[in-house]
Design a protein around this nucleic acid. Structure first.
Length: 883
DNA sequence: GCTCTGACTTGCTGCGAAAGCT
DNA sequence: AGCTTTCGCAGCAAGTCAGAGC
């Protein structure tokens, strides 16, 4: 019997970190602490609108649907990847340019193509990376907080120039007249020189017959942006058009431009821009605004657009052109306000299979009990978690029992958890697992194919005529909620989601997805093109929250937003000096709110702390910067602060850092007269903080600092001179940088259960090698005297070897021991550091790609298939790219 | 100016497949 | 070949942030 049990929904409804300053980074020991217990989203209008209009126009021209044949063709290209390594980059560029043009004609005719805000930002490459941290990470203990604000990077004249440019930028900043956002808008719009930087990167195939592009297949050639073969037979979504105005619009082949020349041009332009910047430094400018904040916020925004327009009229004709696409910071892609797509077709979501009762009886008070399929389903949920830590937690058990009892009914024999014995079901589960494991390869393959066949249609959406991969098209199956840390709702039943729970979002003229469960229908069908979700349902655990179905990370919609995120972070580097000057000044402000804002900003900047939103009582008790409690920060001697709190995911953040005297003093003041559980920043919340940050830089929010600091650190560490002859050495450098970032961001993982055993095994191996080495040394000295080797420990006689041979062997073993000891050390160091998170979310992939190009490291040594797909937009970056 | 909530990003874990090792 | 370790990825929890509504 299959149970499709959609329980009454009501029944259960009740219910880091920072930038380069090594001084501030968590010590390894801090990093070792593991769990205690257990936007760019809306892109900067000017940016978004650019990309979007491009994208949209593409779609408008090119929307149509890929013939079956083409799709089939496409599938056949799956897996044909990874053949391009670094050495192939140039070739791939040629291929791209050869193919790009024809498709540009086909799909890209938007005037937006020639505007280049996003890419203009790229042209900042030669700007001062961060004049103020010349060697911040190199000198492992040079604090970013220390007074090297503004000190120059030790090398290039380009940087020198850039620094001057930035200095000018700040010095001339008369913001009273022209708000920052105007500057921003103008700047990005004006700086069109970078356009020339890019080589044609249009990888789309020349097939005029192709109507629907595809984007985001994890299985397709990850180099789709680079490689011809990957795109054979299908249109990749014009991703690059979305971002890069850099590409000449309709030319077949583009001659690479002299980057130096371009840089010079861009520099001149930049300086022109700066000349036009206002005179009043940010610090001064901020005064009036902050005193009347936050109500003034809206006003400011309004002023921004008008002044911005004025400014733009002063600029070149080019600018005026661009302004067409950036005139309203609010108008995003496509034609309408906030529009994300024009046409959207998809197949909805797939539901987990109905529950199949197994009939295995659990015991209650030693006696087998009959359970209905519904009751058995929930019992099984608990039984399979029997050997997890959850099953031992009181709260988990309590919540589970609470919800299970509702299903058991009042008169059921089962009353007390202590009398329940789930072992029979658990054993059944183990057997099932074993059975599955024992299946032959063919059986497994067949099963996999069957699953794929069922899911294929749900895996793709057609967004504006381009086939895109859908992310999480599977509805979450019922189960017991596994909240992290001491989550008050852990163990509660996550009931089965039915079609009537699900709201579908789809294009107006698209066929409404068929509801897979007979007799049921969707809760609602919407046609909202201002959002990117394809479907959502309310989280059964917390009904006021929603679970969304989005496109996959490799989709251009996501890629676009990703790039915008990094552009915003890059922009921060132009403002950071001033921002730091501002907050440093405010450490001693008489206005407590101002002082709290300045200290919080300092902590977010220096320690990469998260913003720290308020949380409800029915969530785990974790904090971020704004919600730090008095007890989370301890004043230590020598101006040191000791932080100890549970952050996101209940991961412990433990770090003792030297801070500036002003911060130290201010924290003491914030603490005085308060109890341990009181808010350290009682005058502050994330909203106030972000409002303030936006006054310093358009679009700036707390989380931008994390991205900035992470990417800046990587860029900085990879830019240093190194003697890396072989690929292993190069990779080691990359991983070291990656690790540094992970530590800064407090990205931890739980230590593998077998870690100690693995270490012990490595120790054994090393000891074994060392024993062998000793023996060889003995044999060598004997051989030199013409004596035969000693017997091996097991009594066997060894053959005579010449001293030269023995010396060679010894050298080999020594190398092996060195390598093993290093591996052991790294493994131990990284046992609780998660490197993946920063790579996926914080490190601008262009830094990595550019470094790979410069150092001739195959990109696939760093990015796996999904990252290659996710970062397709970054693959064309110039080797000289600087964050 | 505050709360609520919608939309989206970030982040860790666990499982299965692939790769590495003996 | 069989076992161990690593890797990739799906899954889904838990953040951030903006804007509507009061």
């Amino acid at each position: 019997m299959a149970v499709h049990g959609c329980l009454n929904p009501n029944v259960f409804d009740n219910g880091d970190e920072d930038d380069t300053p090594v001084v501030f980074r968590r010590s390894s020991s801090a990093a070792k602490q593991s769990q205690v217990n257990s936007s760019v989203k809306k892109p900067l209008p000017s940016q978004r609108q650019e990309g979007s209009s491009l994208q949209n126009s593409n779609l408008q021209k090119g929307k149509s649907v890929l013939p079956e044949k083409t799709l089939a063709n496409k599938s056949s290209t799956r897996g044909s990847t990874n053949s391009i390594s670094l050495t192939d980059w140039s070739r791939s560029s040629e291929l791209k340019s050869a193919y790009g043009a024809s498709e540009s004609k086909l799909l890209i005719k938007s005037p937006g193509e020639s505007s280049g805000d996003l890419d203009d930002l790229d042209s900042d490459d030669d700007k001062p990376l961060c004049a103020r941290y010349p060697n911040s990470v190199q000198k492992s203990n040079s604090s970013r907080a220390s007074k090297d604000f503004g000190s120059l990077p030790p090398n290039s004249s380009v940087e020198e120039k850039a620094k001057i440019a930035v200095k000018k930028h700040y010095d001339n900043d008369s913001e009273d007249e022209v708000p920052l956002s105007a500057k921003f808008g103008v700047k990005s719009g004006a700086d069109s020189s970078s356009k020339n930087l890019s080589i044609s990167n249009d990888q789309r195939p020349p097939s005029a017959s192709i109507k629907v592009g595809q984007n985001g297949s994890a299985k397709r050639d990850p180099y789709n942006t680079l490689s011809l073969k990957s795109s054979k037979g299908l249109n990749k979504r014009p991703l690059d058009d979305v971002y890069s105005s850099a590409r000449p619009s309709s030319v077949k082949k583009v001659k690479p431009v002299d980057p130096i020349k371009v840089k010079q041009e861009s520099k001149v332009k930049e300086e022109e821009d700066m000349d036009e910047e206002d005179n009043v430094p940010l610090v001064q400018r901020k005064k009036p605004a902050s005193s009347e904040r936050p109500s003034s916020n809206k006003k400011v925004t309004k002023v921004v657009s008008t002044t911005k327009f004025k400014k733009m009229t002063k600029k070149s004709k080019k600018l005026a052109e661009d302004s067409k696409y950036s005139k309203s910071m609010k108008v995003p892609p496509g034609s309408g306000e906030g529009q994300k797509w024009t046409t959207l077709v998809h197949s909805g979501v797939i539901f987990p299979p109905p529950y199949k009762p197994h009939g295995v009886k659990m015991l209650y008070n030693g006696q087998p009990v009959d359970l209905s399929p519904e009751q058995e389903e929930v019992a099984t949920m608990f039984a399979v978690m029997k050997d997890t830590e959850y099953a031992t937690k009181q709260k988990f058990i309590e919540n589970f029992m609470g919800d299970w009892k509702v299903i058991l009914g009042r008169n059921h024999v089962i009353k007390k958890f202590e009398l329940c014995d789930f072992t029979p079901i658990y054993e059944w589960h183990l057997k099932e697992k074993e059975k599955k494991k024992q299946m032959t390869t063919e059986e497994k393959k067949a099963l996999k194919e069957e699953k794929l066949k069922q899911e294929e249609k749900y895996m793709w959406a057609i967004v504006d005529g381009v086939k895109e991969k859908v992310g999480n098209f599977r509805v979450e199956p019922p189960g017991l909620f596994r909240g992290r840390g001491e989550h008050p709702k852990m163990g509660k039943l996550k009931r089965r989601i039915c079609p009537s729970d699900i709201t579908i979002n789809i294009g107006k003229n698209a066929p409404i997805p068929e509801c897979a469960i007979p007799g049921e229908r969707w809760k609602e069908v919407k046609h909202d093109n201002t959002v990117t979700w394809l479907a959502f349902w309310n989280d059964p655990i917390n009904p006021k929250e929603s679970k969304y179905v989005f496109l996959a990370a490799s989709s251009s919609l996501k890629g676009q937003s990703d790039k915008e995120k990094y552009e915003k972070a890059r922009m921060l580097k132009n403002y950071i000096k001033n921002i730091r000057a501002t907050y440093t000044k405010d450490f001693t402000s008489k206005d407590v709110t101002k002082r709290q804002i300045s200290v919080a900003t300092y902590l977010i900047d220096k320690l990469a702390l998260r913003a720290g939103n308020e949380k409800d009582d029915d969530e785990a008790d974790t904090v971020g910067c704004c919600t730090l409690k008095v007890e989370n920060v301890t004043l230590m001697p020598e101006n040191k602060l000791k932080f100890d709190f549970l952050g996101k995911d209940s991961i412990r953040y433990e770090n003792t850092v030297a801070v500036e005297a002003g911060v130290y003093k201010a924290v003491g003041q914030f603490q005085s007269g308060k109890k341990g559980g009181d808010d350290l920043f009682d005058k502050l919340d994330t909203s106030k903080l972000n409002t303030h940050l936006k006054e310093l830089m358009p679009g700036l929010t707390a989380k931008v600092f994390r991205t900035y600091n992470a990417s800046f650190t990587l860029d900085d560490m990879l830019t240093r001179d190194t003697k890396d002859d072989n690929i292993q050495e190069k990779l080691k450098i990359y991983h070291t940088a990656n690790r540094e970032v992970a530590i800064i961001c407090n990205h931890q993982r739980s230590v593998s259960k077998t870690h100690d055993a693995q270490m012990a095994r490595l120790d054994d191996k090393i000891a074994e090698l060392k024993r062998g080495l000793e023996e060889l040394n003995v044999d060598l000295s004997r051989a030199k005297k013409g004596k035969p080797p000693v017997r091996s420990p097991d009594g066997k006689t060894k053959k005579n070897m010449a001293p030269e041979v023995l010396e060679k062997k010894i050298a080999q073993i020594l190398t092996k021991i060195d390598k093993m000891e290093l591996d052991r050390q790294l493994k131990d160091q990284n046992k609780n550091v998660a490197l993946g998170t920063s790579k996926i979310n914080y490190l601008d992939p262009r830094i990595t790609v550019a470094w790979c190009k410069r150092r001739e490291v195959p990109i696939e040594k760093i990015f796996n298939k999904s990252l290659l797909a996710k970062f397709a937009w970054a693959m064309d970056v110039e080797p000289g790219f600087k964050f």
